[in-house]
Nucleic acid binder design. Structure first.
Length: 249
DNA sequence: CCATTAAATTCAA
DNA sequence: TTGAATTTAATGG
């Protein structure tokens, strides 16, 4: 992992409607609390970590010293399962936090994180962030909302893995990627291998490949290699509506 | 799960 | 930019 001495100017782009210019969200923590996070001299001199595609920057079981904000790029957060297979917990993109679960009292990371593309990270040491939280109630409150959302999401994921069929879980994964990364010229804007879909959906690569070909025959999706296109989002949503599709992260 | 073939991606000239 | 080498997808046992 490369550590650059940041000649990279820290910008704080804001769109006309007040949302974050990088991620487009109005709850973006980096954007909304930019002054809190980057006002001190040390914070501004804090290097940006650059890691390239495929690099792991959080190792499961390593001691927790802080957490990361993604400046650019995308990341998968994984946990190693019983048989050594990796379970993808979530995907994260620019402006999101990674490594927050170990933040409070936990000593070791329970997850690993791997860059899916070249990725730039802001790193915040535990103590520093603790001070920000203690000094700034609004920041603390926003962080709390973020944690609450994450908890909700992970509880829903437990349900989806334990109660949905393979087909439903694959569809759910496709909708999740679509919701989170959108599409570009008709294809999901994040290229993932079938293996990665499987690791997220809690199934095997073969099952994903088979569900994909069935969905393709049914005209619900199109696929060109890693580029997957959703023909009709509503039709896919209908399939899993009885299992409550309502996550918005 | 594994083996085979087809397809896609990467890489270096 | 091409095509050979490597990786990934798809299918059937």
């Amino acid at each position: 992992m490369l550590v650059s001495t940041s000649n990279d100017p820290f910008e704080n782009k804001t769109s006309l409607d007040g949302t974050c210019g990088v991620c487009g969200s109005h709850n973006c923590l980096i954007h909304n609390f930019y002054d809190v996070l980057f006002n001190s001299k040390e914070a501004r001199n804090n290097p940006i970590l650059k890691c390239q595609k495929g690099q792991q920057f959080i190792i499961e079981g390593a001691p927790v010293n802080g957490l990361y904000f993604i400046k650019s790029g995308t990341v998968k957060v994984i946990r190693t399962g019983i048989n050594g297979r990796e379970q993808i917990v979530r995907f994260a993109k620019a402006c999101e936090i990674v490594g927050h679960r170990g933040f409070g009292t936990q000593e070791y990371y329970s997850i690993g994180a791997i860059a899916l593309q070249d990725t730039e990270l802001y790193y915040f040491a535990k103590e520093k962030l603790q001070n920000y939280l203690l000094e700034n109630p609004k920041f603390a409150y926003s962080m709390m909302l973020f944690y609450a959302n994450e908890l909700n999401r992970s509880e829903n994921k437990v349900k989806s893995i334990s109660q949905m069929t393979v087909r439903e879980r694959v569809i759910d994964s496709l909708l999740y990627i679509n919701r989170k990364f959108g599409d570009l010229r008709g294809f999901l804007n994040l290229p993932l291998s079938r293996r990665e879909y499987a690791d997220y959906a809690g199934t095997t690569e073969e099952q994903v490949i088979r569900v994909f070909s069935i969905l393709k025959k049914e005209g619900l999706i199109s696929a060109k290699g890693k580029k997957i296109g959703i023909t009709d989002v509503q039709l896919l949503k209908n399939e899993i509506s009885e299992h409550n599709y309502f996550l918005d992260t």
